[in-house]
């Protein structure tokens, strides 16, 4: 994932066709992870998180089991009904073979057209197929992209090795397999697990005390937002690198608030003690905890946002 993200960043900076980015503040927002921006007709950009090969394979394997389930159900019925009745047996086997054909070629497309881009496996892993412009998938694209699994699964030995599909996913900006490329679709990850990550990170941190501070006890919202972004996805930035980024920020915030250069509590993101290695990171986390607490910093309005309004 991380490797992919870095590659994505390099593609963006190469001046390849990129989705429009907003830049109200003058700085263009570089995407260094698997997110993709889509502009709505309302003129707003919003982002989708692309699903990588790992999660997609998991969903695919779940679907395989479900397909096998369908087929074994289909074979049990004629066997149960058939003793002594060869006609029913023959028709049953014929229908079962037809079912096999349908499951083989149309399983994905039937579900993806009915469930707006999801198969049972994709639903399990919160994945969804959408078109690259962000609109829901059409039946034609659903059928086509699933037919092209036959190409993505190459080379075939005993079963498909899906090498073609994997290489294609790694080589394209939207992590598309051949079927996605040809029918202009992509698979996005809709799980919201990332949203809760900050709350977890901040959990074991002590807030700043007013007594530590000799000047203004406040931090501007933009600075907070910047810090939040720094901790947005803990997988993406290694601890050491984050400390390097955090250092100047932490020093200037301390200066501004008038907090003395103390508190050398050893700490790192995994809770392991490592001397004073990550003290600037830790300080920023304390700032985050102190000033973006209560109903704002956490994904507060997610639940019961209505209760809080007047």
């Amino acid at each position: 994932m991380v490797r992919c993200g870095v590659r994505l960043a390099s593609v963006y900076s190469n001046g390849q066709p990129t989705p429009r980015r907003y830049s109200m503040s003058g700085t263009s927002k570089r995407k260094v992870d698997s997110r993709i921006l889509v502009e709505t007709p309302e003129g707003v950009d919003f982002e989708f998180v692309l699903a990588g090969p790992g999660k997609r394979s998991a969903a695919f394997i779940a679907d395989l089991f479900i397909k096998a389930g369908f087929l074994s159900l289909g074979v049990v019925l004629p066997l149960a009904l058939s003793p002594g009745r060869p006609l029913i047996f023959g028709v049953g086997v014929g229908l079962w073979l037809a079912l096999w054909f349908v499951v083989d070629w149309f399983y994905g497309s039937i579900f993806e057209s009915m469930w707006n881009g999801q198969t049972p496996g994709k639903r399990l892993y919160h994945l969804r197929v959408i078109r690259t412009n962000g609109t829901p998938i059409t039946s034609a694209s659903a059928i086509g992209r699933n037919f092209l699994l036959a190409a993505d699964s190459q080379p075939l030995l005993i079963c498909g090795l899906y090498t073609v599909g994997l290489i294609s996913m790694l080589a394209t900006r939207r992590m598309q397999r051949i079927g996605d490329l040809v029918f202009d679709t992509m698979v996005v990850d809709e799980s919201r697990e990332r949203a809760s990550s900050i709350r977890e990170v901040v959990e074991e941190v002590e807030p700043l005390l007013r007594s530590e501070c000799t000047r203004r006890f406040a931090v501007p919202e933009r600075t907070l937002a910047l810090i939040e972004r720094l901790f947005d996805d803990t997988r993406l930035i290694p601890d050491g690198l984050r400390e390097v980024i955090a250092t100047p920020l932490s020093i200037s915030i301390r200066k501004r608030m008038g907090i003395s250069e103390s508190s050398p509590i050893g700490w790192n993101l995994n809770g392991r003690s490592s001397g004073t290695a990550l003290r600037h990171t830790y300080f920023l986390l304390r700032v985050l905890k102190t000033f973006s607490s209560s109903d704002i910093g956490t994904p507060g309005p997610v639940s019961g946002g209505g209760g809080r309004s007047e």
Binding site: V44, F46, T135, P136, A195, E221, D232, S292, G297
Partner: peptide, 24 residues
């Protein structure tokens, strides 16, 4: 730039609505 969390939340809301409104 009112924070990544808030932005993420609204972003999710927009994505969901977009998915509901713009069907084929």
């Amino acid at each position: 730039e009112w924070g990544a969390q808030l932005e993420q939340y609204l972003n999710d809301l927009v994505a969901q609505g977009h998915n509901c409104l713009y069907r084929s």
